[in-house]
Nucleic acid binder design. Structure first.
Lengths: 192, 192
DNA sequence: CCTCAAAAGTGATCTAGGTCACCCGACCTC
DNA sequence: GAGGTCGGGTGACCTAGATCACTTTTGAGG
């Protein structure tokens, strides 16, 4: 029963920081729309208006952008329990510059920005949760930036697989390369 | 009268997202401790226990880390109105891995993590403000990461000066190089 | 005005990783 | 079973930026 799993997954996530009564949680949950996507399907494409974000229940979603030379750079592999969107577009009400799409079949819970703000205002613990979540994203991105400046590809590749071993089988190497910011050729030559 | 300026600066910042009554703001402000530092002075050093963060009133503070080869990488130049700390250490209660120190004489307002959490619990608008602040940091860091992967030094240098023209006169070039993640020699050769 | 240290410039050389071209094998689908 | 596409590997080159060694400029303190 996919929807039950989704509800439980969201509950587990939010209880990391905030306690909601059952009624509060049901109310919170009622603002999320469950959606299913097929492998390869796009959720957000550059140029779209972005007014929602996604909580991953199952599967794996990549967020990425494509530069003028059609080279792809991956920002995030969103695994179950993670959140994803084009947050720049979402918060600044601009058009998407990044894309989300599904590396595998995926189930998500979708929340509009308006509903998030409404929930944050109505339920203080929800606001706390979202503050905490973004803190973690901020710290993680900062670490990644530092690693990028400081370490070579081989180190960053091993670091990534250490942190997320499941990626090794789930995600093709060319996407790993796009996350690490190197060419697939270089990644393929690492085992020397 | 430095303290008055500080109070006003903080008020301006928080009113970007949240409305506090004068009593609420005075209460909020009473948790901040004004401090002055001299050019070159350290605020946080790697290995310290970190239990507070800093709001910059005047001057410029760099946050940076030093790798095993003693090479410096700069995370942020904090200008007036910005916040700075080792957020990883602060949130995870671990020892500092990054350093803060003053590029110029500086005045700051210092807030402990405990007080921040207390204020966030007591005043919903304060929690909203900190959520918003971290959102912005997250989006900015993500943009910087993408630019790092996508653009060469020259482009990133111009982008930085475009965004913060005041850095050009305020900050020595070797620090700019440490922010861009290149050697000072390379930066100095850019004007070709 | 002199001194000393820090900031900045520059030439010569080296290297990690990019680029291009090509190959192979595992799947699909018709 | 022929063709197509996708993931992945590899050889031959090229280039942005690093590194090292040295010089010049700047500016603050006595």
């Amino acid at each position: 029963m996919p929807t039950m799993d989704a509800k439980q997954a969201l509950k587990t996530t939010i209880s990391k920081t905030s306690t909601l009564t059952d009624e509060q949680f049901d109310y919170f949950f009622s603002h999320f729309k469950p959606l299913s996507y097929k492998k390869g399907q796009a959720i957000i494409s550059a140029g779209d208006l972005v007014d929602r974000e996604y909580f991953v229940v199952s599967g794996c979603i990549k967020s990425f952008f494509i530069n003028e030379d059609l080279k792809m750079f991956i920002l995030q592999f969103a695994m179950p329990g993670w959140w994803s969107s084009d947050y720049n577009a979402l918060y600044n009400h601009t058009k998407a510059t990044i894309n989300l799409d599904c590396i595998t079949d995926a189930e998500v819970l979708c929340l509009t920005s308006d509903d998030r703000e409404k929930l944050c205002s109505e339920l203080h613990p929800v606001e706390r949760f979202f503050r905490w979540r973004t803190n973690n994203g901020y710290v993680a991105t900062q670490k990644r930036l530092m690693s990028f400046m400081n370490n070579n590809v081989k180190y960053r590749y091993e670091e990534l697989l250490n942190l997320y071993p499941e990626l090794y089988n789930m995600v093709p190497k060319n996407l790993i390369a796009a996350y690490l910011g190197v060419s697939r050729e270089t990644l393929s030559r690492l085992r020397d």
